[in-house]
Simulated scan of single mutants.
Amino acid sequence: MSIFSTILNKIFPHDHPANTTSASTTAPAATAASAPGSTTVPAGTPSTPPTVSAQTSQPSVAPMPAVDVEAVLTKLQEGSGQQLNWRTSIVDLLKLLGLDSSLDARKQLAAELHYSGSTEDSAAMNVWLHREVMQKLAANGGKVPDELK
């Protein structure tokens, strides 16, 4: 499991869509053609535009439930008994989640998240990692305050 997947698992409920590994959230085109109520037109028959909106034939995707990332991390902080600055430090964020915060682990996380800078400049990498993790948490259904992104 990737480090970022582990971060998601620590913050999001286990039944949250960001943590589930379903095959796909969209139906394949073949499924739509064989759906009940659809008709097959024989080859060579001129097709006419359907009278039913294409939107009604597509499966509806439920909105991803939002998870208040700040509240989850604050609660973890309160229960940890440690003074960790998870709001700005990727090292402290990883420690709060009970994950490896070593330089090697952070370099691995940087590779997972496609960091293009030098991993030898750990200060710059750490700042980028924290911001990128927060943005990715937001992209996966996390409610993250703007000042943390």
Rank of each mutant, 00 (worst) to 15 (best):
A71G: 03
A32F: 09
S34G: 12
V61E: 14
A105I: 00
Q83R: 15
W86A: 05
L73C: 05
G98D: 07
M64P: 01
Q108K: 10
E70C: 11
N85D: 12
L76T: 04
T74F: 07
G37Q: 01
A35H: 02
T51G: 13
S53D: 15
S38Y: 07
T48G: 10
Q83A: 13
R106G: 01
Q58K: 15
A33W: 04
T48C: 02
P49F: 15
A29I: 08
A43P: 00
V69G: 03
T56D: 14
T26Y: 09
L96R: 00
A35L: 02
S53M: 10
P36M: 01
L103C: 09
D104Y: 07
Q83F: 13
S101C: 08
S80N: 06
G44C: 02
L76K: 12
A30R: 12
G37L: 02
V67F: 06
R106P: 00
S80R: 05
Q83M: 10
L103I: 15
D100K: 06
A105C: 00
E78A: 13
S47F: 13
A66L: 13
L97A: 05
G44Y: 05
M64F: 11
P28W: 00
D104A: 10
G79I: 02
V41A: 04
S80W: 08
L109G: 00
T26G: 04
S89M: 08
V61C: 03
S102G: 03
L84C: 05
Q58V: 14
D68Q: 09
V61H: 11
A32D: 03
Q55M: 15
N85V: 06
P65G: 08
T45P: 01
T88I: 14
D68R: 04
T48W: 09
V69T: 11
Q108D: 12
A33T: 08
S47L: 15
W86K: 04
A33E: 10
S101P: 03
P49L: 15
T39P: 01
A111Q: 06
T56L: 10
T45F: 08
S57R: 15
V41M: 10
L84W: 08
A62H: 07
Q82L: 14
G81L: 07
D92H: 13
K107N: 07
K107V: 09
L73E: 03
R87V: 11
T51F: 09
T40S: 09
